[in-house]
């Protein structure tokens, strides 16, 4: 596959012509970028872990994430399950596009890339719904309606004749409380979502390139492979975010 640049430089191994890692410059740099990006996410999740370990109480994920479109409550983890499935599925279509690229099959690469773009867009749509729903419940980067210390105030406001929703919004706006949970949730899923968005944009660009025959003329589909590495990494990060925010 990536032997195209080696042949031209044979016999000049100290002139940067050989590939000691058996991978092209671009692919190698993508790997090292992903390694550094992994450390960025590690830092965010480590901060989350330290704060959560130090907290005296924490929001229960089965309570926070119990809604789906059309289901107001009582469906814990169902919606995030759908999101996880969508992202794994789009990882599969991406690797199928890479596989088709190795066979130089332009039509199949384009087909699987379009599915990958659709999967990424669906995931972003799901995340937009999830965030909007949490905002409507009064959550934001500095407000945590799931904080246990707000419960007595919410009950007090409900006793004064407010609906549970109004009471929660009033409590979350007026009573000082610990908002580490929502702050970390929106920061980390937001940072991941931004990676998905970038991935979808890059996927669209290479899909258009593949359609235009750019890689066919180049003689290889290595670009699909490099972008594929990034896309799988986004899936990989989600696997960890899913475990530490929704399960643990």
């Amino acid at each position: 596959m990536s032997t195209h640049s080696v042949a031209a430089n044979e016999g000049k191994i100290w002139d940067g012509g050989n590939e000691p890692f058996g991978a092209s410059y671009g692919k190698l740099m993508m790997w090292f970028f992903l390694l550094s990006d992994a450390f960025t996410f590690t830092a965010l999740l480590l901060g989350y872990g330290a704060l959560r370990f130090s907290a005296l109480n924490w929001a229960d994920p089965d309570v926070v994430f119990q809604s789906a479109p059309g289901i107001e409550s009582g469906a814990p983890l169902v919606f995030v399950g759908i999101m996880t499935f969508i992202l794994i599925m789009s990882s599969v279509t991406m690797v199928l596009a890479v596989e088709a690229g190795h066979r130089n099959s332009k039509s199949e690469v384009v087909k699987w890339m379009i599915w990958t773009v659709i999967g990424g867009a669906m995931f972003l749509g799901c995340q937009a719904w999830e965030w909007t729903h949490l905002f409507s419940e009064g959550a934001s980067i500095t407000k945590n309606p799931f904080a246990p210390e707000l419960v007595p105030y919410i009950e007090k406001f409900v006793a004064q004749g407010m609906s549970h929703h109004e009471a929660t919004l009033k409590a979350v706006n007026e009573i000082p409380h610990n908002y580490e949970f929502t702050s970390l949730f929106f920061t980390i899923t937001g940072f991941h979502g931004f990676h998905v968005l970038s991935g979808v944009v890059i996927n669209i660009i290479i899909t258009i390139n593949a359609m235009a025959g750019t890689y066919q003329r180049r003689g290889h589909y290595e670009m699909i492979e490099k972008v594929g590495l990034y896309w799988h990494f986004v899936d990989l990060v989600w696997v960890f975010v899913f475990t530490f925010f929704y399960l643990v």
Binding site: P20, F21, G22, A23, L28, W31, S91, V92, M94, V95, E225, G228, L229, H232, F233, D235, L236, V239, F240, T243, L247, V248
Partner: peptide
């Protein structure tokens, strides 16, 4: 959960990202 997550991470990196089949130094 963490162990299962690490299994998933292994399969994504080794097979989807193809790292298992790269040169050992990579």
């Amino acid at each position: 959960y963490v162990v299962l997550t690490l299994f998933k991470a292994f399969y994504i990196i080794a097979y989807f990202m193809h790292l298992k089949f790269e040169k050992i130094n990579l």
